[in-house]
């Protein structure tokens, strides 16, 4: 492969590239050491980066719905089934508990994707709370955080 040629590079091109690399690395270090998720894409890489204690309570947030035929079912929080994912709802728990009508996003998202099902009457924001006991899985209980009646 001795015939490979090398393309030239100007002094200016060389300099801005080095400057850009150093600034980029600086921003990334600053993001991880000092900033929050707000500065994405140079924020801290904080997925699974916290340290739950041996006796922590593990929480799974769900939305349940009461159908017109009397069934109470789980409305899976995924984009394909409800138009919104669990993480998005979890991030909004305080807002939803003060204004349960925000659950409309899940109710509408689910209804528009399940037109064959009976209409939704009521939705609940609930949590499965699992206690850890000395680093091992303990008991689980169901807690209701908010409820919203759909306007008929």
């Amino acid at each position: 492969m001795g015939k490979q040629r090398v393309r030239g590079i100007s002094r200016g091109s060389y300099a801005w590239r080095i400057a850009a690399s150093l600034i980029g690395i600086g921003l990334l270090l600053n993001g991880s050491l000092r900033m929050s998720d707000d500065v994405w894409p140079v924020g801290p890489l904080s997925q699974y980066a916290f340290s739950p204690a041996k006796d922590t309570t593990i929480v799974i947030t769900r939305v349940e719905g009461l159908l017109a035929d009397g069934r109470r079912i789980d409305l899976p929080l995924r984009v394909e089934t409800a138009g919104i994912s669990r993480a998005e709802i979890e991030a909004r728990i305080p807002e939803i508990t003060t204004d349960p009508s925000l659950l409309r996003s899940v109710a509408d998202g689910w209804s528009s994707r399940h037109r064959g099902e009976p209409p939704l009457w009521r939705v609940w924001l609930v949590q499965d709370q699992t206690r850890l006991v000395d680093g091992r899985v303990g008991t689980t209980r169901l807690v209701e955080l908010a409820a919203w009646e759909l306007p008929s």
Binding site: P52, A53, T56, G135, V137
Partner: peptide, 15 residues
């Protein structure tokens, strides 16, 4: 030591 000694993986698996 706090992260490697925490219950993070247990937490992730339960969820």
């Amino acid at each position: 030591t706090s992260w490697p000694e925490s219950s993070i993986l247990l937490w992730a698996i339960v969820r």
